[in-house]
Amino acid sequence: MKLRTLGLTVLGAVGLSALTACKKDEAPAATAAAPAPAVKAAPLPADTPLPPEDTAPAQAPQGGGTVRGIVTFKGTPPASTPIDPGTDPNCEGMDLVEQPVHVKDGKLANVLVRVQGNVPGQSTPPPSSMVVVDQNRCTYLPRVQGAVVGQPLVLMNSDGTLHNVRGMAGKKQLFNVTQPPLKTREAQPPADAEVIRLKCDIHPWMTAFVVVNPNPYFSTSSEDGAFTLQGVPPGTYTLEAWHETLGTKTAQVTVTEGQEAQVSFEFVAAR
């Protein structure tokens, strides 16, 4: 099964502008002057609608075979890092720890598993459906997802506070989109961008990744470590499992029409 995907263009008006420093909220002391109430997230305003057919995940490719597997983690995961959200009341309810290596019961989440390179016989244009990154409670959701080269990437702000989305490829800035409360934008990175890191200068703990692939056969491991790639044409392929801090693992897989192949990956804690 392929993952929800990303690509980047500017939806409506794209503002490429830098921002700075970001915080979260804490309840004020009873004796302190009450701050202005938080603006609650609401449906997107009528001037920036996202048609349901554009935001729905793309349908899995038909025919072919299926690749299923589990991503595991051996050893003790790195300790999570506390987040100081500051005093932005719109961040209420966000996670207060940074946990790039998300392990539960020995299973590793947020690993992007993909078929490497071009797939023979696949000359279809990129999906018209949009890959959506939502800013919700001062957190990017999802943290890791895939996109086909050229697929539209929509940046959504569901919070009642200002954000920005800075897209980076290594140390190179690809775009910087201002996100007013309850607005959407679209951004388009260069065609050769492969791993795009998203960050917010206003809320500096916010991080997400979009892995851009030449074919639509990719999936992100869930909390139980599971991933599924559907509709893969028959053939022998190299699968890559990518993690934001642990690097990559590869494995060979042979796909047969109408059959299911099993492939698993194990990441090991640093010694």
Rank of each mutant, 00 (worst) to 15 (best):
L182C: 07
N176H: 14
S222I: 07
G117E: 09
D192A: 14
K249M: 05
P51E: 00
V268I: 10
Q259F: 12
M130K: 02
A18C: 15
V97H: 00
P52L: 03
T178Y: 07
G258Q: 12
D192E: 12
L198E: 02
P214H: 12
Q99N: 10
M156C: 03
P125A: 15
Q99L: 03
G69Y: 11
V133Q: 04
V149E: 14
Q59D: 15
G86C: 12
K172F: 05
V10W: 07
F267G: 07
L44G: 01
A33W: 06
G7K: 15
N215Q: 14
A36S: 10
V132F: 00
F267E: 06
H243I: 13
F175I: 15
I70H: 08
A251Q: 14
P49H: 00
A29F: 08
P216A: 02
V67H: 02
Q135F: 09
F209Y: 08
Q62D: 10
L141P: 00
K23V: 13
P204K: 02
E26V: 13
E244C: 06
H203Y: 11
T256M: 03
I196D: 03
E26D: 08
V165T: 06
V263I: 07
V115N: 04
P180T: 15
I202H: 09
I70Y: 06
H102M: 09
V14A: 15
G93I: 05
D54C: 11
G150D: 08
F227S: 09
A208R: 03
